[in-house]
Amino acid sequence: MSSVRPTSSAGDPDRLRDGVPEFPDHPTLTQIAQRQMQIDTWDAMSVDGYRFAKPGAIISFLLTAIMVVLVLTPIPPNWPWDIPLCILSIFSAVVMVVCGLLWLDRPDSGPRPELLEIVPFTRAENLQLMSGQGAEPYGAICACPGCGDECTHLVRRPTDSEPDWATVTRCCRVCNREWVQA
């Protein structure tokens, strides 16, 4: 489903300017796809840090502290393990710094992008778009040319005002866009 939000009112669909009806602006499929990518990017950026960062920083800090204490204590049985423990404590300190930076990193992704508002198509708009539409073969599954919705569309017989070559007229439930198919 596309990232669109139906509007509560379509305004005055029968506005006339110089004798030609003025239709409202409808978002294009490209604009809808771009907005969906913006929303997906925002969702990916605004995860609350990394899940392993906080426990990783705390655990590696404790391990580093314990290993440094063991390396620096003058207890004789520890001397064969001083070099490996020193190397492990350095690696643990690096893990602590990396996890700490990831834990404290909070990218500012701004507010979540709003869904595009869908202005329903009027009957006059649908007739104008259908009159300029080329012959399209019937397909059981197809996307709405207005909003990209791929749900099941209502199908009806064409009326006299629709193209002669049409065998079915489809209507989208999201944006009220109608188009014909042969």
Rank of each mutant, 00 (worst) to 15 (best):
A10K: 06
G11E: 09
G11D: 08
P13L: 09
L16M: 10
E22K: 05
F23M: 12
D25M: 06
D25E: 15
P27F: 02
T30I: 05
I32L: 08
R35H: 15
Q36I: 04
T41G: 11
W42F: 10
S46I: 01
R51Y: 11
F52Y: 10
F52I: 11
M67F: 15
L70G: 02
L72P: 00
L72M: 05
L72S: 00
I75W: 03
P76K: 10
N78K: 03
D82E: 00
D82M: 04
I83C: 03
L85R: 07
I87C: 07
L88H: 01
S89Q: 04
S89M: 08
I90E: 10
I90Q: 08
V94K: 02
V94S: 07
M96G: 00
V98F: 05
D108H: 05
S109W: 02
G110T: 02
E117P: 06
I118C: 13
F121H: 14
T122D: 14
T122W: 09
L129C: 09
L129N: 09
L129E: 14
A135P: 09
A135L: 15
I141F: 14
C147A: 14
T152R: 10
L154A: 12
E162F: 12
T167Q: 15
V168T: 08
T169S: 11
T169K: 15
V174F: 12
Q181A: 15
